[in-house]
Design a protein around this nucleic acid. Structure first.
Lengths: 226, 226
DNA sequence: AGGCTCGATGAAGAAATGATGAACGGGCGA
DNA sequence: TCGCCCGTTCATCATTTCTTCATCGAGCCT
């Protein structure tokens, strides 16, 4: 999952980024409002952590612009003080949740998970299809209730496929969300295929029954019918 | 999505075209301003990538003419140098975004996506006629709500026919859009006919009821009546 | 109706795409 | 520092898809 952190305090931003990366998120950082707006408009993110106090263009402006563009990405706003007025203003503009500084990383993670879940219209922290179950909280995966050990990249790939269940996901899309901006579509050889292969092996995916190859497009995980 | 690239450097244009085609855009190329203006006025595009320096008629002239015609298609302009004056002039004339040469393909893709998303909100990702429904996002096709598996070329052909619903489409046109500029109308045997045949079979098109043959011209899909 | 052209069709070779096994190299922890 | 794990790349194999070709059939014009 791809997350953008918008904060002008490099230290804090770096700290958040590190925490999120440990949780296998793909993280990018923007230091001011203008840069953030630019990135948000051109790159697809799954979540935005947005500080209100920013140079150039404050958090509200960024949020307003983004919603005006019709971008529905969930936004978690950070406020310096517990100012009620700001809270209301942000919610009016379409923020999805709030967090007051200072906050604990655990709290931040919890909010982020909740938001990502909500944007997917799901109440449970699980992404489950067939006998596969992925816990977005503990980042564990089970197959027929048996734990499966996945590497970080494998996990991210599976997570994204489950997120887009029943939809064909192109390699390009997958790369964008799993690798973030640090990927070059031309340099990247066939390593997505390799990860898919490894995933299939670990998930005991005999004949592409779980992860379906959509020739000429990419991959897909199907739900519902057998 | 249909994109027109206007650039007088065949190499660059071809490179851009290739990149975009990999992203499943339908791409056309115009080498000079006059040709571009002609195409823009007759064909519907979702986006135009417009170089400023052009023979015959420069980018500004094309842009001005196009807006004068009331065509609101988003335009991404390419500038040779970071000339501020040009930038301002272009924006005045109604360009939607800018990119300075040289640029990376990744950057170009990001800008294009951003521009398309705005207008994309209005247009649904579906093309539907009769009981056929085509999703341009996931590249899936259903017939009477039953999924139909098409190969990439088949999909592209069907997409173009649906796009030009109720209009007879010549083989030449079809080839141009599906195969891009890298096609030679004489080398290409009758393979369009073959794809049409396969499509008809998969779509259970009994007696040319869905894909109509227009003798001496090409093919057409009709809307409206059964 | 006859001749002619254009389109339809089935099959086979060529090309593209994905799958796989293995090896290299960097980063991290011991 | 060494060794291990993971991510990436590469070479090769298998399968699907695209293209070509030869032939058949149908529509159009005179």
């Amino acid at each position: 999952m791809r997350v953008l952190i918008v904060d002008d305090e490099p230290e804090l931003a770096a700290q958040i980024a590190q925490t999120l990366r440990q949780q296998r998120y793909t993280v990018e950082i923007a230091g001011d409002g203008a840069a953030a707006a630019e990135l948000i408009c051109t790159e697809p993110y799954d979540l935005i952590v947005l500080d209100i106090m920013l140079p150039e263009k404050d958090g509200f402006a960024v949020l307003a612009e983004l919603r005006a563009e019709g971008i529905a990405t969930p936004v978690l706003m950070l406020t310096a003080k517990g100012e009620v007025a700001n809270r209301v203003k942000g919610l009016d503009l379409g923020a999805d949740d709030y967090l007051h500084k200072p906050f604990s990383m655990a709290e931040l993670l919890a909010r982020i998970r909740a938001l990502l879940r909500r944007s997917h219209d799901k109440a449970s922290p699980y992404l489950a299809v067939g006998s596969i179950r992925l816990d977005t909280n503990t980042r564990g995966v089970t197959l027929d209730n048996e734990p499966v050990v996945l590497t970080p990249k494998e996990f991210s790939v599976l997570e994204f496929l489950l997120y887009n269940c029943n939809r064909a996901v192109s390699r390009f899309n997958l790369a964008e969300h799993v690798w973030g901006e640090a990927f070059d579509p031309f340099t990247m050889s066939n390593n997505i295929d390799v990860h898919i292969k490894n995933l299939r092996k670990k998930l005991d995916d005999q004949a592409g029954r779980i992860i379906v190859t959509v020739r000429g497009v990419g991959y897909m995980i199907r739900d519902g019918q057998a």
